[in-house]
Design a protein around this nucleic acid. Structure first.
Lengths: 188, 188
DNA sequence: CCTACCGATCGGTAGG
DNA sequence: CCTACCGATCGGTAGG
């Protein structure tokens, strides 16, 4: 692991524990056994560190959603999206926490880019739910509201979810899939 | 409205828009037409201001939950809890935002107190869901996980919910109640 | 990669 | 309620 990666990992840990603004560059330097000024050989600014973490998390959520086959029927597709979301959360709980808690502190330009990624991510859920509403899989009046409901249930989980191995994750994801499919009026 | 209330209201707005650490006491002073130092005639410290906002929000969520009659059957009781949560959110979106985003920056003592209030709030949901699981209203294996699911769906809504009058709120709450009762395997 | 430093800004206080 | 100030800390840089 090179120095830059080491710094980004430590920043993910510190930012998720204490918050972006509470963590100083000296805190970060200490965590990787450097003096404060020496960080700047590897990174351009504090905000760049935050951006790397947030964008990496966004990339992983998007990649997970993209990997769910569009050919599946809406119910299975939605289940796949839910499982993927929880899998990314389990794998990247620190980066995901920074993503949700601190992305608003990015510069306007970078924040806009992340917003676009969030919209794209939301799009996967919206299309799946709208498809399911159209073909009778789901019973929802307003696909947009249903999407916000589903994403709310998913987005908050980083606050209390402590990944404890893949077995626990699978059982947990099963329950979550059941709740969500039921909520939209799909079977089970 | 006295000066202190004015300051707390302005702080609720500023903290919810920009975050606690990004907002300086000079920003807050400017918002109420004072010089920086003059704030301290009305408040003891920046953290006291945060504590007032967070504790006020916690109080309102708890009061709403307490007002739901324990004599109602579990389904109606849960519906009441959901409606109450969304009503507090609509009424106090700024304080609620500060509550969720910034409570972790309180001193350990105050954070512990808020944690207790959160546990108490969660308790209303947990007891209702456990009651419903026991009498067959709900079909859930794990009442604790079901509670976390319901609270996740509710807690994230402050991120995107923009209250637009009581009519919109009622229609919105109806949908949310439907999703949640269905998720737990209650009818509708 | 370190030492030493920069200007800027912070929360809070004294004195009136 | 204001002016003027305090020490502390911040992100970032220069020079080696």
């Amino acid at each position: 692991m090179d120095r830059r990666t080491e710094i980004l990992d430590a920043a993910g840990r510190l930012f998720s524990e204490s918050g972006y603004h509470v963590t100083s560059m000296r805190d970060l330097a200490r965590a990787v056994n450097l003096q404060g000024g020496s960080l700047y050989t590897h990174i351009a600014s504090k905000e760049e560190v935050l951006a790397e973490i947030v964008e990496d998390a966004a990339r992983q959520f998007l990649a997970g959603a993209r990997a769910v086959p569009e050919t599946l029927p809406p119910g299975e597709r939605l289940a796949g999206l839910v499982r993927s979301h929880l899998a990314v959360l389990a794998r990247e709980i620190r980066r995901a926490t920074v993503f949700f808690d601190e992305w608003r502190f990015l510069s306007p330009e970078r924040r806009d880019r992340v917003q676009q990624q969030r919209d794209a991510y939301e799009g996967y859920f919206l299309r799946t739910i709208a498809d399911g509403a159209a073909d009778g899989t789901f019973r929802v009046d307003d696909s947009r509201l249903a999407t916000l409901f589903v994403l709310s249930a998913l987005n908050w989980t980083y606050q209390w979810f402590h990944p404890a191995g893949p077995l626990a994750l699978d059982a947990f994801a099963d329950q979550y899939v059941t709740f969500i499919l039921r909520a939209l009026g799909g079977t089970t």
